[in-house]
Structure formats: structure tokens, C-alpha cells
Design a protein around this nucleic acid. Structure first.
Length: 711
RNA sequence: GGGCGCUUAGCUCAGUUGGUUCAGAGCACCUGCCUUACAAGCAGGGGGUCACUAGUUCGAAUCUAGUAGCGCCCACCA
């Protein structure tokens, strides 16, 4: 008999096992005998950074579902991908440029694009090798990048369809604009931050009003009060004379129910170009008051409309304006303790400037309705269930979605504006020869790119080669969409909306949401806190199986997961335990030849019965998406029942001729069953044992063995 | 301002339809063991008013209402 190492060494084995799997060809569903598909589309990791522990969570959960279904005779496809991650990657790359003393603004757009493209391709390689280290049994022959031709083609096709259907429109709106990143955002990409800012009570002629943004006064087009406010009733719909820093002027007072008479003085200045509410007030009073006056530019500095303050940054301008107004006696009092919520850029935390811009918008409500129906009619099940409420709430209150981004890295928007008649043409990517309205040949291409989530929202079908490919026909819709709850709105809901719109089919049957991985103390992991656990380091130190076990046990859907080195060590020990069970069994069954003549003893029948019960429990729990339970049950059974009890009392029974053969048969039956049950959770060690163990009947790899029959 | 979730052993968490496998698991801890599968181990052990209050019930960790603390998401009040 070959010498078997006393402790299992993952470092020595994992790489060769992975290549054994790859060579077997069974990652590719076309090589499986099964007919019924089981499909998971991997949430494509960003191709701008190595994987973090959160990625290891999805690998663990998705791989376990894939392996389980593959062993249950399903045509299992796990489609891997990588995300160009538009704005995210651009930010990462610009930081890199900054370190090198370079800047995007000193580059040609094409050159920048090429560099970033190269950068993402290099990162893809890293990510791919990391996914392999984690044991991901995905079909690399189908690897998709979110900038692959087929994805872009689909995106254009759907954008055009939406445009033709009136679900995409060009509109001038106040958008969330970050003056650092020089781009607009959707409502989801901004965060709220509580800030303490002075609230200034300023004099506008006979009226006092409160504002935190006196610097926008140059954009004021009216004063608004509540229509029934007795204090101001006499001024409504009249112009009042006010004194400003540049002399006397007149401004109109309007009544609008938006104004809360109990806040401040009950009067607000209306600055439609720089405040969402004010913009909406203007829309309601278009006939009576002037339109938006832009006093803040895209560079975050005041425009010529601000007269002497032109060129100042917003914060500087505010200070100066306040000083000057105080001098002129226009500020009556200041409330220094005023706190309010301010929108900030989710990336740089700079205050978001509402900015008037013409952008492409998706009309969301018509897309939301079928998405709501899909869950209501239980065509999609969301796990955990309470996310269904959140889902409905979000979709019922959905607002139109700005999909234009002023970035360079991304899918450019296939839209052209006629220079003569100003109308917009949308194509499937090709440049139009002439304006279809006025025949002019002078066209101007939109320089913006899509919000990455617009194309990502089409991932369910775009990644499979919509609409004609064999894969799309065979593998759409997918079975389970497994991803983190943090991108539930960004991604999952949009996939439902766009999936139904494009294909008339619901893009997936189940949604499984996992939580964030947190450090031992419950803290969010972050580089600055120095408490990150790098999954690859863990694999190098303890093995992939140990990492996977610790990411599945205690991991409840929708709930954050706490992980620590001690926990990982604990499961490393378990993996070693399994290895040593193998050593024991191999050492005691080498002479065994199976035969139907072996009669099982009563106690052996009981052991097999116990095992079958556990197999059933594990199976049921996996089917119910209770992966943690399944793994825990198995862990407990393997260690504290099979190892501690069965193997212990086998030591005597194997000595006795009368009981030896029955026990040998039992041990082998149960242990091969354990290997199968454990394989989706700890694929490496189980495969290694399967390859090493002396069994008469074996398949090529454990990965395609039949799952134990459950009764 | 709305919505959601959590509170069970030192730590991380399970506890499906309320009932003697419901008071549990893993880790940590204590005691004794190098018994040739494994010291990354074995045998045994301590430890919890199930946040609080009231209610429903023959019976509540589990259902209802409320209180407190923590966390998350959404939101246009200057």
C-alpha cells in the first residue's frame, strides 16, 4: 500500500485536482449526458481588482449548487464572466494615472480606452486564476466579458427597441452631478450624508426666507410660499422689490403647496437650476416665472451669471456671498445648528450638485409593472422572502432612470443628433448616413456612455448570445440568480425588468441573496481598517475546502456573515478529519472484494440506515436553499457519528473474521456516500480521496458521480 | 419621515407548523489522555431568567401588543 500522508495537504493537491477537472471536460455542459439544464450566470466580477472575500462567498454558494445539480443529472452550466465595470474601473484607473503623474484629461479618449481595456484584460487573467483556486467549476469555454461584441450588440439592439417603443427618451432634467468625476449619476449611485450647515435667514424685500445655499441666489427665479399662508397671502402672484448685492430688482412670489409653512420662515427661494424641488416648482409654474438659470458649472465653479463671484468654487462662493450679504445687512440671523441630509457621490463623498442636463432616460414605470407581476404570481421566488416586500416597494415608487454617463470607459450610446433639425437618431451601432427627418448629413454623435447597469441589466440574455444562439435557446432563462443583497436594486431588479421586456420571459426562477462578509467584531472589512481577509491567502494557508466550509456554515440568506481565522482553522481541521477517515478505511479495506453474498449484520444495517437519513436531510436542505444547515448536519454526522462512533467500534469488529466483511462493506458504502454528499461543499479533498481510494467501480471524476439516492 | 431586520452560552449563530431529541451547534474554556486514522486528535466537563413588559394558551425562545438597544435600506422639506 502506498504511504498516505498523515495530514491532508491542500497546497500539494488542489492545483492538480483542478486541472484534472478541467481536462475531464465536464465543466462544459455539452459534455454531460444530462438533458435538463440547470443554469447559473456568475455575477461577473469587476475586471479592475483582484477578488475579495465577498467573491469567495458567491463562488462557494454557486459552485455548490452547480456541483449538486451536476451530480443530480442536470445539464449544469455555470457561465463565468468579467465586468468592465464602467465608472468603477474608470475611477480605479484614474487613480493609477494620478500616481503616475498623468491625467485622463491630458489624453486622447481613444488612447485612454485602449489602456483601460488592456488593464482589464490583465485583471481578468488574475481573477480567472483566483476563481480556479477557489475551485469554481464554471465553463471557461463560455467566458464572457461585458464588452464582448455580442453583449454590446444586444445592448444596442435593446436600446433601439426601447427608443422605438418610447421607453427611452432624451430629456432635460436635473440630474445628480458629481463635479469631481464630471458625470451624472442615477438616483441609486448617490448617498445621503447628514451634515451640519448654517441656515441663513435672509431678507428678500419684505419677506424673510431661510436657506443653506445663499450662493445660488443668482439663480433665483421666484419666491415660493404656501398658498394659504396668511403671512404672505398678500404677495402671492405679485412681484416684490428686493434688495440684492447688485442693487434693487424684482422677483415674483408664488404659492405652492410644497412649501411647509412651519419650516423656517415659511418662504423659500426658488432656484430651479440647482434644486430638485425648485425645479419641480418651476415645472408647475412655468407660465408665471422664469426658467432655470445655471449659476454653477460642471466644473463646480460659479458661472458668469454669478457676476463678481464667477469662477469661485461653491464653498468659496458661499463664504464670500455670506460676508458680503452680512455687510449689506441682508442676513438677519444664522442658525448654526441646522442639520440636514445632503446627497453625496458614492465614490468620493463630494456633495452632488443637481445639474440641468440633457440625458437619456429609461421610462421605468411600464417596465416595473410586469416585474411586480412576476413575483406576485410566484414566477420568481426571492430568498430570503422578506426581500419581496422591499422589491415591491422599490418598484412601486420607481422613478425614471438616467442611463447617460459622461465617462470614457463604457459602451458608447448609439445616438446621433442632427445638426440641422436637432432631432435624435438611434441605431444598432452603425452611424446613420443622413438624418431621417431632414436628410441632413451633418450629425453629431452622443459622446456619453451607458450606465454600466444598463448593459448589466441585460446580462441574463446578452451573455448567452441573444436572440439567435443555441445557448440562448437552451439555457435561457437561468435557474438561480445568486448575488449579494447590496446590488439587489442596481442589478437584480433591473435584470427582471429588462429581461421580461426583451424576451417576454422571466429571466430566472429564483433569486438567492447573500450578505456581506464581516470581520470578527462585526465590523465591515476594509483596507483602511486593516481587517480584510484575503481569500487567496486563506486558500494558500488552509486550503480552498476549509475556506468554503467556513463561508457556507453560518451563512444565512440575506444576512451578513462573520468570519475569522479561528473559524477557518476549525474547518481546516474538519477537512483533515475526512482525510484521516480515508486513511483508516483505505488501510482496513484494501483486501476487500465486494460480493452480494456478504450478509450485513444488524448493527451495520443500522449504520447504513443512519447514513441514508443524513443523506436525505442534506439533500432536502440543499433543495430548500438551506446550505448552512446541510453543511452543518453533514459536518456533525461525519465527525461525531461516523468517525467517533462507527469507526471507533469498527476497530474491534474488523479484527473478527465473522464481522469483518460486513463492516468493510458498510464502511465503504457509507464513506463513498459521504464523499459524494461532501463534494459540493469541499470539492478538492473529496475528489483527491476519490481518486486515491481503492474502489472497484469508479467514474472518471467524483464531480460527475451520482448523488446518493435518497428515500 | 417611511420600511425592514436583529437581541438565545465568553464569541459566531441554529432553533421549520407553539408540546419530554427545545434550551442546541461550532469555536473558545476546564479536566484527563501521544489508545498505530487523525494532538489539525480522543474521552469527559462547566456554562444561558432565550433583551424587557404585558397578553393569548393546558403549555411560549416560538404567536400578539408594547418598551429599550443595535443595525440596514428607502426618502425632495429650503
Amino acid at each position: 500500500m502506498k504511504e498516505i500522508a498523515k495530514t491532508y495537504n491542500p497546497q500539494e493537491n488542489e492545483k492538480s485536482i483542478y486541472s484534472l477537472w478541467e481536462k475531464s471536460g465536464f465543466f462544459n455542459p455539452d459534455n454531460l449526458k444530462a438533458k435538463k439544464p440547470f443554469v447559473i450566470l456568475m455575477p461577473p466580477p469587476n475586471a479592475n481588482d483582484p477578488l475579495h472575500i465577498g467573491h469567495a462567498v458567491f463562488v462557494t454558494l454557486q459552485d455548490l449548487m452547480i456541483r449538486y445539480n451536476r451530480m443530480n443529472n442536470k445539464k449544469a452550466l455555470w457561465l463565468p464572466g468579467a465586468d468592465h465595470a464602467g465608472f468603477e474601473t474608470q475611477v480605479v484607473y484614474e487613480k493609477k494615472l494620478e500616481k503616475e503623474g498623468r491625467s485622463r484629461f491630458k489624453m486622447q479618449r481613444e488612447d485612454f480606452y485602449k489602456e483601460v481595456f488592456k488593464y482589464t484584460q490583465e485583471n481578468r487573467k488574475t481573477v480567472k486564476s483566483q476563481l480556479k483556486k477557489l475551485g469554481a467549476s464554471c465553463d471557461w469555454s463560455r467566458d464572457v466579458f461585458t464588452l464582448d461584441d455580442k453583449v454590446i450588440k444586444t445592448t444596442y439592439q435593446i436600446f433601439k427597441k426601447m427608443f422605438d417603443d418610447g421607453l427611452v427618451y432624451r430629456g432635460e432634467r436635473l440630474v445628480n452631478y458629481c463635479t469631481k468625476h464630471r458625470t451624472a449619476f442615477s438616483d441609486l449611485e448617490i448617498e445621503k450624508e447628514e451634515k451640519k450647515d448654517p441656515l441663513y435667514y435672509i431678507k428678500y424685500g419684505p419677506i424673510r426666507l431661510a436657506t443653506v445655499r445663499p450662493e445660488t441666489k443668482f439663480g433665483d427665479t421666484a419666491i415660493a410660499v404656501h398658498p394659504r399662508d396668511k403671512r404672505y397671502k398678500k404677495y402671492i402672484n405679485k412681484e416684490i422689490e428686493i434688495e440684492t448685492l447688485s442693487g434693487k430688482t424684482k422677483i415674483r412670489v408664488i404659492g405652492d403647496k410644497f412649501v411647509d409653512p412651519d419650516f423656517g420662515t415659511g418662504a423659500v427661494k426658488v432656484t430651479p437650476a440647482h434644486d430638485q424641488n425648485d425645479f419641480e416648482i418651476w415645472l408647475r409654474h412655468k407660465e408665471e416665472i422664469p426658467g432655470p438659470i445655471q449659476v454653477i458649472g460642471e466644473d463646480g465653479r460659479l458661472t458668469e451669471k454669478a457676476g463678481p463671484y464667477q469662477g469661485l468654487l461653491v464653498e468659496e462662493a458661499r463664504e464670500r456671498v455670506v460676508v458680503d450679504m452680512k455687510k449689506a445687512g441682508l442676513i438677519e440671523k444664522v442658525d448654526e445648528n441646522y442639520t440636514h441630509n445632503v446627497s453625496v457621490c458614492y465614490k468620493c463623498k463630494k456633495t452632488i450638485e443637481p445639474m440641468l442636463k440633457e440625458q437619456w432616460f429609461v421610462k421605468a414605470a411600464p417596465l416595473a409593472q410586469p416585474a411586480i407581476e412576476a413575483v406576485k404570481k410566484k414566477k420568481i421566488e426571492i430568498i430570503p422572502k422578506n426581500y419581496e416586500k422591499i422589491y415591491f416597494h422599490w418598484l412601486k415608487n420607481i422613478k425614471d432612470w438616467n442611463i447617460s454617463r459622461q465617462n470614457w470607459w463604457g459602451i458608447s450610446i448609439p445616438a446621433w443628433q442632427c445638426k440641422r433639425c436637432n432631432r435624435w437618431l438611434v441605431t444598432r451601432g452603425e452611424s446613420p448616413k443622413k438624418c431621417s427627418f431632414c436628410n441632413s448629413k451633418e450629425m453629431h454623435k452622443d459622446s456619453d456612455v451607458f450606465d454600466t447597469w444598463f448593459s448589466s441589466g441585460q446580462w441574463t440574455f446578452a451573455s448567452l448570445g441573444y436572440p439567435d444562439s443555441k445557448d440562448f435557446k437552451e439555457f435561457y432563462p437561468s435557474s438561480v440568480m445568486e448575488t449579494g443583497y447590496d446590488i439587489f436594486f442596481f442589478w437584480v431588479i433591473r435584470m427582471v425588468m429588462l429581461g421580461i421586456y426583451a424576451t417576454d420571459k422571466i429571466p430566472f426562477e429564483k433569486v438567492y441573496l447573500h450578505g456581506l462578509v464581516r470581520a470578527k467584531d462585526g465590523q465591515k472589512m476594509s483596507k483602511s481598517k486593516g481587517n480584510v481577509i484575503d481569500p487567496i491567502t486563506v486558500v494558500d494557508n488552509y486550503g480552498s475546502d476549509a475556506l468554503r466550509m467556513s463561508l457556507v456554515i453560518g451563512n444565512m440568506p440575506g444576512r451578513d456573515l462573520v468570519i475569522s481565522e479561528e473559524k477557518i482553522k476549525g474547518y481546516r481541521n474538519f477537512i483533515n478529519k475526512v482525510w484521516n477517515i480515508f486513511r483508516f478505511i483505505e488501510g482496513n479495506t484494501a483486501d476487500f472484494k465486494d460480493s452480494s453474498s456478504i450478509k450485513l449484520s444488524v448493527s451495520d444495517k443500522k449504520i447504513i440506515d443512519d447514513f441514508d437519513k443524513i443523506a436525505k436531510k442534506v439533500d432536502v436542505n440543499i433543495k430548500k436553499f438551506k446550505f448552512s444547515h446541510a453543511a452543518e448536519k453533514l459536518y456533525h454526522y461525519v465527525w461525531h457519528n461516523f468517525a467517533d462512533k462507527v469507526i471507533e467500534n469498527s476497530k474491534d469488529l474488523l479484527q473478527d473474521k465473522k464481522t469483518r466483511r460486513s463492516r468493510q462493506k458498510t464502511l465503504l458504502y457509507v464513506f463513498t456516500g459521504i464523499l459524494k454528499l461532501l463534494h459540493p461543499f469541499a470539492p478538492f479533498v473529496t475528489e483527491k480521496i476519490y481518486q486515491s481510494i481503492s474502489l472497484t467501480k469508479k467514474k472518471e471524476v467524483l464531480m460527475i458521480e451520482n448523488w446518493p439516492k435518497t428515500r
